[in-house]
């Protein structure tokens, strides 16, 4: 396939660029089995292969069959299905390699370590002395920092789960006094002028109309050939 020049790339719309990226995606080619790989498992949603740059022997990549660049684009059902597979792969690795643990790892964004434009989940077996690292530093938060963080995140989390924050209970208002005088009565049935009432059609008439309509509709839909029918009944 001819590669576009620098100028062509710059004049492309984001949609066109995304399309080009999808066409050139090595992982999409692996999934289509145009490029050989070491397949571990596949189903309707995902395709699992051995990573060619593994952290440990048996390092698996779980790829969605559909091309998604980043995780927020992926539908919920697919996420659930892929991570269900990641749990099963992790279990298989524990047994197959007598591992002492597993790491399930996702990087969103280049800064987090994402290298490919196709979303993937890494699952690899771990042992005590594997020198893989992946250790998270641990900092202490002051109570103020914790509180700040909570204040920033809580509204978003409430929005995600549809949690309605309870507003402060308002002081009970005294019930509104009922209108005592009858000089200005509210709009009631007795105050509507009779001209507004239209005579209602009798029930019999409405029933007669309805089936007729349905019948004509059915006929046009099915496109019955009347000539053929006539011949049949002869």
């Amino acid at each position: 396939m001819p590669q576009p020049t620098e100028e062509e790339l710059q004049s492309m719309s984001p949609e066109q660029l995304a399309e080009l990226q999808k066409k050139n995606c090595i992982f999409c080619k692996i999934i289509k089995e145009e490029v050989p790989s070491k397949k571990v498992y596949d189903d309707d949603d995902c395709y699992c292969i051995l990573d060619i740059n593994p952290a440990a022997p048996g390092h698996v990549l779980i790829l969605p069959r559909e091309h998604y660049q980043i995780m927020p684009q992926i539908p919920e059902k697919l996420i659930g299905s892929m991570f269900k597979v990641s749990k099963a792969i992790s279990q298989a690795q524990l047994k197959a390699f007598q591992a002492q643990g597993t790491s399930i790892f996702v990087a969103n964004g280049v800064i987090a370590g994402q290298k490919a434009p196709h979303f993937m989940i890494h699952v690899f077996p771990r042992t005590e002395k594997d020198n893989i690292g992946m250790v998270l530093p641990q900092y202490k938060l002051t109570p103020e920092q914790l509180n700040d963080l909570k204040n920033v995140l809580q509204p978003g989390i409430n929005r995600i789960f549809g949690v309605k924050t309870q507003p402060k209970p308002e002081p009970e208002q005294p019930p509104l006094p009922l209108p005592q005088s009858k000089e200005e009565p509210a709009m009631g049935v007795e105050n509507i002028p009779e001209e507004l009432f239209e005579p209602q059609p009798r029930k019999k008439e409405t029933r007669k109309e309805l089936p007729e309509e349905d019948f004509t509709e059915e006929l046009t839909e099915q496109d019955i050939d009347l000539d053929k029918m006539r011949e049949l009944y002869r």
Binding site: A99, T102, F105, V106, T127, E128
Partner: peptide, 10 residues
């Protein structure tokens, strides 16, 4: 990063 550290070795 979304990370599962599964087991003390991890």
């Amino acid at each position: 990063n979304i990370l599962v550290q599964n087991g003390t070795a991890a």
